[in-house]
Computed example of a mutant assay.
Amino acid sequence: MSVLIITTIDLSNSLTQRPHHMIRYLKNKGIKVTVLSASFENSGEIRDITEENVRYITISLRFLDTFDPRSMYIPYSRIDNEQYDVCMAVGPWAGMIAIILKRQRKINKLVYEDVDYFPAFFDYDIIYERVRQMEKTCLTWADIVVCVSEELVELRRYQTNTPVYFIPNGVDLGVFKEKKAEESESTLDDGIGVDAVDLIYSGALEDWAGVEFVIRGMRELIKILPDIKLAVLGKGSKGNMLFQLVKDLSLENSVRFYGTVKYDELPRYFKNARIGIAVLKPVELIRYAFPLKVIEYMAAGLPVIATDIGDMGRILKKNGAGIAINYSQAEFVEAACALLNDKELYKKCSENARKTSKKYDWNCLFDEEFDIIDI
């Protein structure tokens, strides 16, 4: 079996996402894989590297160029004439490239990996509509559509007659394995103790991520719990603004930024925290999302405070793995205080979180997905 994965995610510079996990899964299975991805350094460089059974072809260009699928297809076609059993196209930009390959009979089966509602990333109506039409075209040409959230499944089944399946995002349980009691008492290399971080956020620092909301909530939490601490992991376009906000609110002793943390290092930070935070803005983008951070927190045994929207709200309420709230400062403060002050509630949510995460093992999820693809 041979698999072509196409994504416009900059795999080398982005946070770890679903394509990273799929590549690792297929690599461990010994399946022949070619990965066509983008780099937004705009150097014009084409990198072609093979590591064991995985070939990485990376094309450097501007993001704007990805709206024309030929910008990646033409340089790719010059160096790879292989025919593939299946193409996994992650998102609409990748899907449009895959359609060209399908027309040329270079792929036998096209799977559209529906990982987000991509139009909602854009504020301008003309771009929103362009991306929406790209998605619809991908749905039409795909042989199978795999959605990461139940909200996306409902939307896509309304939009297309192509078979639509639900395979959520997951977690590498081997990385987030439960620590022994003596291990959990260790500290990070930089000296942060186990109890030094009460709340932790991991992910993109973008407007929709709600990190500003959480930082402003810290000002209220400190009035009740003076020693409370927040750790922020990740990067994004709002990073500088958030740094300044912490200074403006005089929260330098309560909020600490760590920048990008490698996936395999996340458990070292999570085990020194008490609650995982995913209070994302209740906007269209988040309604259809399935944030990886929620399951990663759970796998580390962290109760989660998250916005009651989409799949993440349903998971928390169904499994008792944390507290789902409205996008309200008062509810955020109340939820944090409840978990930090009520030991029985905290223990129950922590146990439920770890138990729930076992349903989302990447290996099991991808086993199911490739059984559906049936190649």
Rank of each mutant, 00 (worst) to 15 (best):
Q329G: 09
I6Q: 09
I277P: 02
A321R: 09
E182M: 08
L266H: 05
E52Y: 12
G310A: 10
L4D: 05
Y76C: 03
R62W: 01
E344I: 11
Q329I: 12
I97E: 05
K235V: 04
V175G: 04
I46T: 15
E334M: 07
K102S: 10
F332A: 07
T356I: 03
A336F: 05
R78S: 12
D123W: 02
I372R: 04
M88Q: 08
V255Q: 06
K281A: 06
D308H: 09
D264K: 12
K180D: 09
I79L: 15
K281F: 00
T7R: 13
N253I: 01
C364P: 00
R219T: 13
L316G: 06
A306H: 10
V279L: 10
P168I: 00
Y158F: 02
T50A: 08
D308M: 02
L110P: 01
I192H: 14
V211Q: 05
E154L: 03
L155T: 07
S60A: 10
Q244L: 12
Y84R: 15
D65Y: 11
D227L: 11
V197T: 13
A324T: 12
I57H: 03
R18W: 06
S43K: 12
V197G: 01
F366S: 06
D195L: 12
I192A: 08
A120E: 10
T16D: 07
G217Y: 06
A142Y: 04
R156D: 08
K27I: 01
R216W: 05
A335R: 08
K247R: 13
C138K: 12
I275K: 10
T260L: 07
C364L: 14
I46K: 13
Q159H: 03
S37W: 01
S350Y: 03
D248P: 00
R274Q: 13
N169C: 07
D10W: 11
V3G: 02
D308R: 14
Q329W: 08
V111Q: 10
N319R: 14
W141A: 09
V146A: 12
A38K: 09
R70G: 00
V304D: 07
S237A: 10
V111M: 07
G313W: 02
S237G: 02
P168T: 01
E150Q: 14
P303K: 13
V279R: 08
T58C: 07
V54R: 09
Y263F: 09
Y263K: 07
M218S: 11
L221M: 15
